[in-house]
Design a protein around this nucleic acid. Structure first.
Lengths: 157, 157
DNA sequence: CAGGTACCCTACCTACCCGATAGGAAACGC
DNA sequence: GCGTTTCCTATCGGGTAGGTAGGGTACCTG
């Protein structure tokens, strides 16, 4: 009953990109910088970004001046997208295991009731995930007065 | 991002008692019967019931004719009670881990935003858990026409 | 009071998976 | 071509979920 560190790292990482590049969308942010700011092991963060890239949420640019940037605008990427990409579950965060209980020969008497229950919970949670966009988080960051790294904005002077 | 089998088993077990004794509340249901109906390993189910008993959700009676029965009426026991008792988390199902990220020296830049996020999610989920009672589940079971075991009602003829 | 029933307590074990580290290859920019 | 940065794969240690086991204790019945 908890989110994996992978997902939490991933949310922080994507938020970091969205926040840092809110004035210059599409600019690549190197993983190294993100790792330092967000206190995520670099080599582990790289793996996370691979998952995000394969899921079509970020794109990458190699070599100097390379890094990662959002494929879609920040208000089109939801927490649900991240969770699905990183938690490794397509649909049914809670219900999935309950299903396997039935699959085994001889389903429990109360399966009809409890399975429906977990699916409802899934619905509630997924709906909540879907209505939180990265842009929402950026706005929150601004409201809290979080600091941006200047190096990115340099090129806009 | 999933409930443990322990919690799922526990929900089924408590539902089983509530459902079987809906016409004769307070009658003890032996673990052995529950284990068979709900397809839960008996020795494991016993452990689960110990947690539930210590949490004050069920009471037990030893010896022949013994078993477990609900301490409170079914409409006063919520899913939240069960989850707290079995998942081993007092408060903060999601937020707990995010906290420890901060605790480590050098908190990530986005901690202010993301921690608040997980706490909100906690709130949503916990609220949902709190508004589902065992009695609700019993009603669902009846609506679905689930079968009760006759042996308990025998004594009411 | 004897013996079976059923709960109770503690220890232990094992397979899985999360989180992380590592090595090296491929692309890119200057 | 040389440094930078992403990309791919393998590996690995530790924690824990899930279940087994053994023995004890209360209770009822005959």
């Amino acid at each position: 009953m908890k989110l994996s560190a992978k997902t939490r790292y991933g949310v922080r990482a994507v938020f970091d990109i969205a926040f840092q590049t809110q004035n210059c969308p599409g600019v690549a942010v190197p993983a190294k910088e993100i790792a330092e700011r967000e206190k995520v092991p670099l080599r582990y963060l790289e793996q996370i970004f691979q998952d995000l890239r394969r899921a079509g949420l970020v794109e990458s640019k190699r070599g100097p001046r390379g890094g990662y940037f959002l494929k879609r605008p920040a208000d089109k990427t939801t927490l649900a997208d991240l969770v699905v990409a990183l938690e490794g579950v397509s649909a049914g965060l809670f219900a999935s295991d309950a299903r396997s209980d039935d699959a085994e020969l001889g389903k429990p008497a109360s399966a009809e009731v409890t399975c429906a229950l977990w699916e409802e919970l899934d619905g509630v949670v997924q709906q909540w995930f879907q209505q939180v966009t990265m842009d929402d988080l950026v706005k929150r960051g601004n409201a809290l007065g979080l600091g941006r790294d200047d190096t990115l904005n340099m090129y806009f002077i």
